[in-house]
């Protein structure tokens, strides 16, 4: 049940996201689950662009627009600053994109995860540098078109969840806007855990993915149901839980709706399917499920 009075919208309307932006939806859902006793960190990215120009802000909680690669240590600094003052009822949330997480911010995130500083880090993954106009990042999936991979990305998407799991941090989870209840439950769960919590959130980008403005949630669901982006949690780097049993639709159903994959050859689609199948098998194995 949604009672708007009880759970205020903390990403205010009037923000500057593109129409149909999955990232805005994601931030809205996360902030709502976080609640007003939150300090948020954003970095130069779509989040910065969305957040409004002085003197206006879309963020309903105290927020700092930090530098690109330091979402994690900024959040950690705030968290520890509060801790030394004995303030325990404020949660610190870091938002960074895939560029700020998989690429330029990876080291800093790793450092914070190693220290297990008490923050919730949400990677808003739209699979490329979208704010600067669609360039490849290490999160861009195989064969996808971007402005800097005009013939398609030759490399696979980095597995950030495994990187995080290797830090043995208490909680990491994947989430996506198409499963808002799952997403908000994960945020709520993360709030109850002390230490570095990492949420890898897939957020479809109509502009960068070359899709209509009305299908972001649908793509998000398809990403899960095709096993391109399974929903799962990793606790203490070792306990894996799969949160949603996918319908295992063919990856083609996901790919075919996006302009960035329009040029794909049959064998490339098959390759993506094989990769998805293989990753799913690995994930099931880690979750203690056979086959």
């Amino acid at each position: 049940m949604v009672l708007t009075e009880e759970r205020p919208n903390l990403l205010r309307p009037g923000h500057a996201a593109c129409a149909g932006c999955g990232l805005a939806t994601g931030m809205k859902l996360v902030l709502q689950a976080m609640g007003p006793r939150t300090i948020a960190v954003i970095v130069p990215s779509c989040e910065g662009a969305i957040g409004g120009v002085y003197p206006y802000t879309a963020y309903g909680v105290p927020t700092i627009h930090s530098a690109f690669e330091i979402a994690a240590p900024t959040a950690a600094g705030i968290a520890n600053g509060l801790k030394v003052q004995g303030i325990t009822d404020i949660q610190v949330l870091a938002f960074a994109g895939d560029g700020g997480t998989f690429d330029i911010g990876l080291q800093a995130l790793s450092g914070v995860a190693k220290n297990n500083d008490d923050i919730i880090y949400v990677c808003l993954d739209n699979e490329g540098y979208m704010n600067t106009g669609i360039q490849v990042s290490s999160s861009t999936p195989s064969f996808a078109w971007t402005g800097t991979t005009p013939k398609g990305n030759p490399r696979r998407k980095k597995n950030i969840m495994e990187i995080m799991a290797a830090h043995y941090n208490p909680y990491s989870a994947t989430a996506t806007i198409g499963f808002p209840r799952d997403l908000q439950q994960k945020i709520t769960k993360a709030k109850g855990i002390r230490g570095t919590k990492f949420i890898h959130m897939l957020v479809p980008c109509p502009t960068g993915w070359r899709t209509p403005s009305d299908i972001s949630p649908e793509l998000s669901v398809l990403a899960v149901e095709t096993n391109i982006f399974p929903l799962y949690e990793v606790e203490d780097g070792k306990r894996y839980t799969i949160n949603h049993q996918p319908r295992r639709l063919p990856v083609r159903e996901y790919l075919s709706r996006q302009g960035r994959f329009r040029h794909l050859k049959e064998e490339e689609i098959e390759q993506i399917q094989r990769d998805a199948d293989e990753e799913w098998k690995k994930l099931r194995y880690r979750a203690g499920l056979s086959g």
């Binding site: 009037g14 923000h15 500057a16 409004g52 002085y54 003197p55 802000t57």
Partner: peptide, 13 residues
């Protein structure tokens, strides 16, 4: 330092 306190709601997107 400059701090934005106004709500973007004034912007009629």
């Amino acid at each position: 330092i400059p701090i934005s306190y106004g709500s973007t709601e004034v912007i009629e997107t």
